[in-house]
Design a binder for these strands. Structure first.
Length: 137
DNA sequence: GCCAACGTTGGC
DNA sequence: GCCAACGTTGGC
């Protein structure tokens, strides 16, 4: 199983909105970046990911699961863009802030730190474990 | 609100 | 196919 990180601005799509979708989940649509799209194409059903709030909050707030693999993005007719569906699994008992991540030597290779603009990104199993631990899981 | 970093677009 | 110009993202 692979691990990922999904980034969203609270005002566009928040964790609360994701949770409200329940088991049905929701498309991770609106991505218009090739790198991010390519990562979504690699995702398999059952993969897990972090849900990160960018801009104002800058924190990992919860865990999500991929429930549908890449398919056309319903918000555009442009066949280039695809997306996956994800559902909320659980909230982090303690949110993990970007500040906490940035000071850690063992997380300095995270894409979140090195390429902050990429909205969908891979997370290594080691990074996943460390952050789950920091979040009280 | 600013600006650095990055990605995309389009003229040549 | 290069690269300047431009737009967007997101941390600060």
């Amino acid at each position: 199983m692979a691990y990922w990180l999904f980034k969203s601005e609270t005002t566009t799509w928040s964790w609360d909105q994701q949770v409200a979708k329940g088991e049905a989940g929701e498309e991770w649509d609106g991505v218009r970046n090739y790198q991010a799209r390519n990562f979504m194409r690699e995702m398999k059903r059952g993969d897990q990911g972090f849900f990160y709030h960018s801009q104002k909050d800058r924190e990992i707030v919860g865990l999500v699961e991929v429930i549908a693999e890449a398919h056309p993005d319903s918000t555009t007719d442009d066949p280039r863009w695809e997306c996956v569906d994800i559902k909320a699994l659980r909230a982090m008992p303690k949110p993990v802030y970007l500040d906490q991540i940035k000071v850690r030597e063992d997380l300095s290779d995270m894409v979140l730190v090195k390429n902050s603009r990429l909205s969908v990104q891979p997370v290594t199993e080691q990074q996943w474990r460390i952050i789950c631990d920091m979040g009280g899981l």
